[in-house]
Design a binder for these strands. Sequence first.
DNA 1: CGGGTCTTTGAAGATAGTCAATTTAGGTGG
DNA 2: CCACCTAAATTGACTATCTTCAAAGACCCG
Lengths: 247, 247
Amino acid sequence: MNDQLLHHHTLKVSCSSCSLRELCLPVGLNRDEMSQLDAVIRQSRRLKRGEYLFRSGEGFRSLYAVRTGFFKTCVASQDGREQVTGFQMSGELMGLDGISANVHGCDAIALEDSEVCELPFNRMESLGREIPSLQHHFFRLMSREIVRDQNVMLLLGNMKAEERLAAFLLNLSGRLASRGFAANDFILRMSREEIGSFLGLKLETVSRTLSKFAQQGWISVDHKHIKLDQPDSLKTLVSGCSQAHSH
Amino acid sequence: MNDQLLHHHTLKVSCSSCSLRELCLPVGLNRDEMSQLDAVIRQSRRLKRGEYLFRSGEGFRSLYAVRTGFFKTCVASQDGREQVTGFQMSGELMGLDGISANVHGCDAIALEDSEVCELPFNRMESLGREIPSLQHHFFRLMSREIVRDQNVMLLLGNMKAEERLAAFLLNLSGRLASRGFAANDFILRMSREEIGSFLGLKLETVSRTLSKFAQQGWISVDHKHIKLDQPDSLKTLVSGCSQAHSH
DNA sequence: CGGGTCTTTGAAGATAGTCAATTTAGGTGG
DNA sequence: CCACCTAAATTGACTATCTTCAAAGACCCG
């Protein structure tokens, strides 16, 4: 029965014991506030690779925080063209765009087997009224998303293919590093086509540009396995452009 | 002295009597709540054409709502490249990107003589805790900005020059129409270069594309004066792409 | 009215896209 | 465990779109 209790513990979500608490929502909450938050957050949901967490047009009820795994979000135009608007890793939120119209504005798709926490928005909103620091952090998270989007606009509007890809790799690197992973040796969770969609490039251009970087000795490319051998060279390339921080 | 009183009235901001109250912040508030909001909002500030409302890097204290006039917001990269991230007209908010780091993340510049309301963020935040519908509306406004940004990404990532410009003109048209202005006959407040910066194009491309549209009889261009003669042709051009609503 | 900025237009050039062929990887089932 | 099959990635050749460079013309503010 102790076993069952333990089992229960691993299933039940708890912000207070979550390893992501410094990155995710409960930043700066005290113990009481944290347990109030725990009470609101729904048990985590598991998704297999390729599964949709939500789709554009579906009713909006909850935000989702990535616990483990990797997601992409994308908006689709009527004629089928798809724009990847971001890649989300652990501790990052999805669904903020759904608040405005009470309907999700993008698709969220797991790029590997993943797990998310569900945050019912109504309850988060009322909890925010009771815990000012939570409300404030919420505003900050939404604002951070706006800043991120502005930087993507800068990337898409002003940068050349090489600069875009360099900025992308450095951005991934930094986000992985801040989660305790190796900054200069990682696996891409997304395809060349998905990278291209995010960066406003065709998949062939992504592939060619990666090859070019590798040829110059800046990176090593073994399919999805990327090593940044000379990150500073990449930084020089994007220098002048404020890096597009994805989160 | 009656004169002075009147004068005072025109200076003092009042959401409850503002013609923009259906577009701007106080959507859905009752009379009491509206007057609480009035108490928080600072007297409006006037800016001349070209003047900065705030600059990237400045400390963030307030959001600003456009009362009259027209603004652009832009982020600049270190090497001087500039990306216009949006154009704001009456009833639209600026400064949301400053919340995340307590520092403004972009420049806001008046494109014509303009007037803004200042919304001290701290006080808006605490007022939100007292007026749930205000808090909710605030979240919705921030979410709307995220949706707008996603649509700009789609525009920059997926659309050709003609499609971008058509989407831009239709977007302006719609926003003007919702403010009671003519939808198909308006003055551009921004230069070709600023349009280009927003759309990820060079000013020459903007100019050429406008000429092309005019040559086809879709629009009339007299410098900054634009008439949409065949808006449906423009819509056909962008059809398939969800239009990039700027607000 | 005049200097300077903004705009238009042309011609040449560069970057990224398209089309296509080949290779490789990863998953499935015998 | 291996062979197969489908999907992804690489690479090349060619093309389209947009940019760059340049020059001339128009407007606007002071």
